[in-house]
């Protein structure tokens, strides 16, 4: 209780803490919503690859001193997505191997580039793991802008997105551009990674995409409900992650992900319909009867 009031007092005093909380909540909603579609399309590994592929783009933008670092990030993210498709379609190398190759290749390239720049202002640690308490006003605007644009697009094209996810064959049959939708989602993934750079960083962003969505997936049988629950879990994870990191002075991104994972664990065992613990209990009680 004492810690909570100490935290609230700090929030009302320090702008950096306010910025951090707002950025965290935005990322929670954004990743929560996008993540549902990533899960349902079976693209978790793709999300991992794109988020890593963003690194070289971010570094190039820093080198050029451009503040619009999301352009570089989107460019390398999209290139990686195209590369994965190109490799798996033009050789017998399967999709997951293609993802593995490009994920590590782009990430390694990014690391090589960062290390040639050692001594400059780029902090690798912050890009990789985030530093939510160093969120500037400008970072906040970037995150807000990406969140609004992506959520608006999802609302406008909800129908098309749902149909091409649930039944790609019918989507194609009625003339929806299913390939284009796929590649737009890749670009969205790069944007989401950029938006989450400060909060959780490149390495852990995939957790914010997958874990809250998977938690919601275990709790509902309706997509609209899943979207709401997933963003809610994203926000809860982000806010309590910032709280723990401030109170106990631990890494913010990592604490956010730990909270999200605890929520998933609870749903995994105790979800009313899917819960493993309840199923064990039922099995035991019927076994005895």
């Amino acid at each position: 209780m004492e810690e909570l009031s100490y935290f609230l007092e700090a929030v009302s005093t320090y702008t950096f803490l306010q910025n951090g909380l707002i950025a965290g909540a935005l990322v929670g909603v954004l990743c929560g919503v996008v993540g549902c579609f990533i899960i349902l399309r079976g693209m978790a590994l793709m999300g991992e690859a794109i988020s890593h592929a963003v690194l070289p783009g971010v570094v190039i933008s820093y080198m050029l001193g451009s503040s619009g670092f999301f352009i570089g990030a989107v460019a390398t993210g999209a290139l990686a997505a195209l590369g994965i498709g190109f490799i798996s379609q033009n050789s017998k190398v399967k999709d997951d191997s293609a993802i593995g190759i490009l994920l590590t290749a782009t990430f390694a390239l990014g690391i090589v580039m960062v290390t040639t720049l050692s001594g400059t202002s780029i902090d690798v640690w912050h890009i990789l793991f985030g530093n939510v308490l160093a969120v500037s006003r400008q970072d906040l605007w970037v995150t807000l802008g990406i969140t609004v644009v992506v959520l608006l697009a999802i609302m406008l094209f909800y129908k098309q997105l749902v149909l091409s996810t649930f039944d790609p064959t019918m989507a194609q049959a009625i003339g929806l551009p299913t390939k284009l939708i796929h590649y737009i989602l890749m670009i969205v993934l790069s944007l989401v990674t950029v938006a989450s750079l400060n909060t959780v960083g490149i390495i852990l962003v995939v957790a914010m995409l997958i874990t809250p969505g998977a938690t919601a997936y275990l709790l509902t049988e309706r997509l609209p409900v899943m979207l709401v629950l997933s963003s809610l879990f994203g926000v809860i994870s982000a806010v309590s992650g910032v709280y723990f990191s401030y109170i106990y002075d631990v890494a913010t991104g990592a604490s956010i992900v730990v909270v999200a994972s605890i929520l998933f664990t609870l749903a995994f065992f105790f979800s009313p319909k899917q819960g493993v613990a309840l199923r064990w209990y039922k099995k035991l009680s019927t076994g005895r009867a």
Partner: peptide
């Protein structure tokens, strides 16, 4: 071809039949 774990109710599936006729 269908993922039957998809969070969608029977009536929502049938409603998809209207999609081709609706403005985007």
């Amino acid at each position: 071809m269908i993922d039957f774990d998809f969070p969608v109710l029977v009536e929502d599936v049938v409603l998809m039949g209207s999609y081709p006729h609706l403005k985007w």
